[in-house]
Design a protein around this nucleic acid. Structure first.
Lengths: 302, 302
DNA sequence: TAAAAATACTCCATAGGTATTTTAT
DNA sequence: ATAAAATACCTATGGAGTATTTTTA
């Protein structure tokens, strides 16, 4: 009679595979069984979800909108089942954490073991992606918790600030700025800054600082990671900004490049958690925050 | 195996009836059938939803939280089914509109027939309640569209302003303020204002104006409707504020009390729509807004 | 001809019914 | 004794299987 959760699951699988036989396999049923359930769903909704014409299956435009709704429903179902587990035994099960690449290597190595130790029934899964991707994933209920720079559009997510992470200046040894004890805004004027490639939120931060200090971005160069960036600075190709946590946690950095503090009114990023308001882990998050704060690099500890 | 939408429906009905026999009736099944489905749901979730001890059934605390989740899921299902209908035939089916009492009698009589005429396949249902109740209802998917004063906490609802509705001063005939052509802030000082009872958002608006102008609320008096308020003003018990739309649409008012314009920088309320972001009618709403604007009282037409 | 989806049918798991027992007042 | 929920057992709907046909490249 009425729509079924199972039909919605099948529907979404088919809408990603776009092939009945292959989708049926993913659903662990036979192809005719899938065909009939999809047909039932289409009859129930009173519209065509798939175009199955010329040898290939595609979602109709109506199907697209229905798929959006179906994802929302199944996400809510997932939340309900998760909360049920959580009520029986909180701080257990899968905790899927998403972290940006300019944070992960400096925070996680110390915090993750501590987290595992504090909550031994948690099974931690870490995913490292850039901000946009992480937000997509958490909104689609593929992640439970993000650790990122909070100075971004959070699309309705809840957030909690954990650390202030000031930026430091990295220059080649022997650079003319190195004699100064503190770098002021005017010192950066016309300096060439090497920056990360597009999509890294740290890049946007650094561009703001460029604009403010009238430094300019080095043309024809975009690094894909902080370590590349450090290598280029060491090679004398320019200067760059680094987060304090990186400088503190990676002892090699100070041996490779000169680290200089920026002006008093120092630019910084705010590192913190973000999560879906409907997450069944909402109430656990302040506890995780405690662990993250306690086992963080000294330079950001409040 | 897994949770069923039907189980969730039964669960919510039982959680409102708190009696298996009566709830089963509402579900159109027998009592044992309901018992077994509830039991299955409890087994699936791995927790007790109901306490069935001393002759009466109650929701457990865990049950409460699960009911919240279940409501959310079924609301999303309702949205999906609604959108399916809507894709087949937009501007049709039930449109459940919630309106506050200080707007309904002045806007609806002209707009509703026009709306029916523009969209003959709509079945309009009107609900008149105060703001808090309306917001509760729309969040619970019991209404599709609100028409209210937008100067309130909208709890994540989308909104669209329709009219600016200035307040006017109503005094008894022969009142000493009546000789003035325009009322200024200082004229209201120490005047006794008669206001609506608690819960009307117009009351809060009027209190703000009180505070600003140092007028004071008449003690021991709270009207339950604008017409009561007008009657009291006519009887010489004090003065009050009235929305322009009321004065324009109800010809009796000017025969009963004196209407005076307020200062240039006149206080006003903003009347508009509010709806759930997930509503399947989101795309229709600008069209409804057009009709509402066109068939509104002249005093608020832009 | 081959590969993919739809159709025809068969089967069995389970939602829901009836009859009855248990429990609490 | 009564009223409510649970249990036992039966029935039948419909989800999923196998075999086959239809469709399209």
């Amino acid at each position: 009679m009425s729509m079924t959760l199972r039909q919605l699951e099948y529907f979404l699988i088919l809408s990603s595979k776009l092939n009945f036989r292959i989708a049926a396999e993913s659903c662990f049923i036979t192809q005719p069984a899938l065909s009939s359930q999809i047909k039932l769903l289409e009859e129930n909704l009173g519209l065509l979800l798939f175009e199955r014409n010329k040898q290939n299956v595609t979602l109709t435009s109506q199907g697209h909108r229905m798929a959006e709704r179906a994802r929302h429903i199944l996400s809510a179902v997932n939340d309900m089942e998760g909360e049920a587990c959580n009520l029986q035994k909180p701080f257990s099960g899968e905790l899927r954490i998403g972290v940006i690449p300019t944070i992960a290597p400096y925070i996680l190595p110390s915090v993750i073991p501590a987290l595992s130790h504090s909550y031994p029934d948690l099974r931690l899964f870490l995913h490292e992606h850039r901000t946009d991707r992480l937000i997509e994933m958490i909104l689609d209920n593929k992640l439970d918790l993000l650790l990122l720079d909070l100075n971004v559009e959070l699309k309705g997510l809840c957030s909690l600030a954990l650390y202030d992470d000031p930026f430091l200046l990295a220059t080649p040894f022997g650079h003319k700025l190195n004699t100064k004890s503190v770098i002021l805004k005017k010192d950066l004027k016309d300096q060439e800054l090497l920056l990360l490639e597009d999509g890294h939120c740290m890049r946007d931060h650094a561009l703001d600082i460029c604009e403010f200090s009238q430094a300019r971005e080095a043309p024809d160069f975009r690094a894909s990671s902080l370590s590349t960036l450090i290598g280029m600075v060491a090679a004398g190709s320019g200067i760059t900004l680094l987060p304090s946590i990186a400088v503190e946690m990676d002892a090699q950095i100070r041996k490779t490049v000169q680290i200089l503090p920026l002006t008093k009114n120092t630019p910084k990023r705010t590192i913190g958690f973000a999560w879906r308001p409907n997450s069944y882990r909402s109430e656990e998050i302040p506890h995780y925050a405690k662990v993250f704060r306690q086992y963080s690099p000294a330079c950001v500890r409040k």
